[in-house]
Design a protein around this nucleic acid. Structure first.
Lengths: 155, 155
DNA sequence: TATTGTTATACTCTATAACTATA
DNA sequence: TATAGTTATAGAGTATAACAATA
């Protein structure tokens, strides 16, 4: 039974190793027809996922990086007209980062290309297995994030 | 049905984002009681996984990085006595990188800490779900790698 | 003064290119 | 000369620390 866990971890390691590399990003942006660095794509997609403008700090937390990193890349995205700063409705002093129309299109393309790519890889999968994988991956993600938060509290 | 795929990709993205960061590596090495950088751990664990000495090129391919990267980090690991060079039995001119006893211990510890951590995160999982996740993750990894290879051939 | 974000700096990881050695 | 590996160099990506601004 411990065997199952080992296999899962090992498969996961391999998957991450394979998909994390620079070539994967190149293929993604090429297919999407967009010239953008990796952090740029990550920020755009995270804004698309969120479905609403987010503050710098919120983006940094979602991506698990430090805020200076986000500051810099948001500045670049802003210059290219892919995001813009809007007033925070809840907090007059603060700004939120919003996708522009062009930014939303770019983010959607990137997300779509990734989904399509997985669709290609999983072409032979039954509907049952797809549903099962989706359920288990969401569960795993939730539990991993919860476990992480629990650990941070302890420290 | 496309919904399942989207959910899977999105969960996967979140999982990778969360686990890829530097803090995760710090926690890992601290728990394992080893001071080692990320590529170092990756090389050691990949040698442990392989179960036998590997050539530089084979390690690079497994980790999906370029060989100079491996060369440099293997040199550092060699200096610390965690790996050593042995003659390739199949090819007299070549060398293979082997774990030393100390290196094997370090690699095992790192692998164990990761497994333990997932064990903690998945404490509430039923045996059935664990088995199912293991099966689907292996399948996904296989199919993703196959898809990647197929694409590389086309190019 | 507490919170949030920014600027400045430096370090880690990884790729590319040019070179070496060995069969 | 083909293959595997190495050395040298450069460029992403990210963190830390010091600072600024706003309530």
């Amino acid at each position: 039974m411990d065997e199952d866990l080992k296999k899962t971890v090992s498969a996961f390691r391999k998957l991450v190793t394979t998909l994390k590399r620079g070539k994967t990003h190149e293929r993604l942006t090429e297919a999407a027809g967009i010239r953008l660095d990796r952090p740029g794509v990550e920020i755009l997609v995270s804004l698309l996922d969120a479905g609403e403008p987010r503050r710098i700090g919120a983006i940094a937390e979602a991506l698990q990086v430090e805020s200076p990193h986000v500051t810099r890349h948001v500045a670049a995205l802003e210059q290219r007209g892919l995001v813009e700063r809007v007033r925070d409705p809840d907090d007059g002093r603060a700004w939120r980062i919003a996708l522009t129309e062009e930014g939303a299109v770019a983010a959607s393309k990137c997300a779509q290309v990734t989904t399509d790519w997985f669709e290609g890889a999983m072409a032979g999968w039954s509907a049952a297995d797809r549903a099962e994988l989706s359920r288990l991956m969401e569960k795993l993600t939730d539990d991993v994030c919860a476990h992480l938060r629990a650990q941070m509290v302890v420290k």
